[in-house]
C-alpha cells in the first residue's frame, strides 16, 4: 500500500510554555500555561465555538502574527523563527486538514495530493508524488478516469485533502474540524481513515472538533473555553 522507498518520520513531541495569542487591538485571545505531548500522541481539542480552538491550532502552526511564549516542536522553538523559516518548518513537518477541504477544484486528485511539489526542492518531488499516489490508493480515492476534484463527493474530497496532508510524510497532522462538512456516514469513515493513517505512521496529531466520534478516538481531549484550558 505505501511507497516502500520512503521511510516514515516519527511524530514530533510538543511542549508549550506560557503561550498567549493576542488580537490586533491587544485583547488576549488564548492563554495556555503549559502543555506537553509525547511523539505520536493524538490530542483532541473541544469547546464551544469562538472559544479559541482554531486560534490554538493556527498558533501551533506558527501562523498567528501575535503569539508569545514558547511552542516547542521537538528541538525547534517555532515562535523564535522568522516567518520564512516557520513556513519551511510547516512544509517539512506539518500536514493540514481543513473543515472545507481547501482543494484546488480545477486540478485532479493526484495534483492536489502532490500540491507541495510546486514549491518543494526538485530532488524531493519524486518521493512526494509517489507517496501522494500511495496515500490516495490507501484511502480508496477513485483516480480512473482522471477528473477535477470539484466532481468528487465531499467524503472523497476530504480524503484527497488527507492524502495531501500525509504526502510529505510530516511528523505532525493538524486538523481543523475535519468532519464538520460531511454527513454522518462519511464522517465515520473519515474518522477511521484519519486515525488509522496517522497512528500507523506514528505521527503526532492535534484535531479540533465538535465531533464526539472523532474526539473519542483521541488519546486525550483538551477543552478550551474563553481562551483558556477548561479541562
Amino acid at each position: 500500500m505505501r511507497a516502500p522507498s520512503a521511510p516514515e518520520t516519527m511524530g514530533l513531541p510538543l511542549e508549550i510554555a506560557d503561550l498567549a495569542v493576542w488580537a490586533d487591538g491587544g485583547r488576549r485571545l488564548l492563554s495556555i500555561e503549559a502543555l506537553a505531548l509525547a511523539p505520536g500522541a493524538c490530542l483532541g481539542v473541544a469547546g464551544p465555538s469562538g472559544a479559541g480552538k482554531s486560534t490554538f491550532l493556527y498558533a501551533l502552526a506558527g501562523l498567528s502574527p501575535r503569539a508569545t511564549g514558547r511552542i516547542g516542536w521537538g528541538e525547534v522553538d517555532l515562535l523564535a523563527l522568522s516567518r520564512g523559516r516557520r513556513a519551511a518548518f510547516r512544509r517539512d513537518n506539518m500536514g493540514f486538514v481543513f473543515q472545507d477541504f481547501l482543494l484546488f477544484e480545477e486540478l485532479g486528485a493526484t495534483a492536489n495530493a502532490a500540491l507541495l511539489g510546486a514549491f518543494l526542492p526538485a530532488r524531493r518531488r519524486g518521493a512526494l508524488a509517489a507517496r501522494a499516489r500511495a496515500e490516495l490508493a490507501a484511502l480508496n480515492v477513485p483516480l480512473d478516469p482522471p477528473r477535477r476534484v470539484r466532481t468528487y463527493s465531499g467524503g472523497e474530497r476530504q480524503r484527497v485533502a488527507l492524502a495531501r496532508a500525509l504526502a510529505n510524510d510530516p511528523g505532525v497532522i493538524l486538523a481543523d474540524e475535519p468532519t464538520a462538512s460531511l454527513d454522518r456516514e462519511t464522517k465515520d469513515r473519515l474518522v477511521d481513515d484519519l486515525t488509522r493513517e496517522v497512528r500507523a505512521s506514528g505521527k503526532t496529531m492535534i484535531a479540533v472538533s465538535h465531533d464526539r466520534a472523532l474526539l473519542d478516538r483521541m488519546d486525550r481531549v483538551l477543552t478550551i473555553e474563553n481562551g483558556e484550558v477548561a479541562g
Binding site: 502552526a61 501562523l63 516567518r83 520564512g84 513556513a87 519551511a88 518548518f89 510547516r90 512544509r91 517539512d92 506539518m94 493540514f96 481543513f98 481547501l102 484546488f104 500540491l115 507541495l116 510546486a118 514549491f119
Partner: peptide, 16 residues
C-alpha cells in the same frame, strides 16, 4: 485569497 493563504499555510515561501 483563500487558496493563496492555503499555500502559505502548507509552507509555501512568500516568493512562491
Amino acid at each position: 485569497a483563500q487558496r493563496l493563504a492555503l499555500l502559505r499555510a502548507l509552507g509555501a515561501p512568500a516568493r512562491f
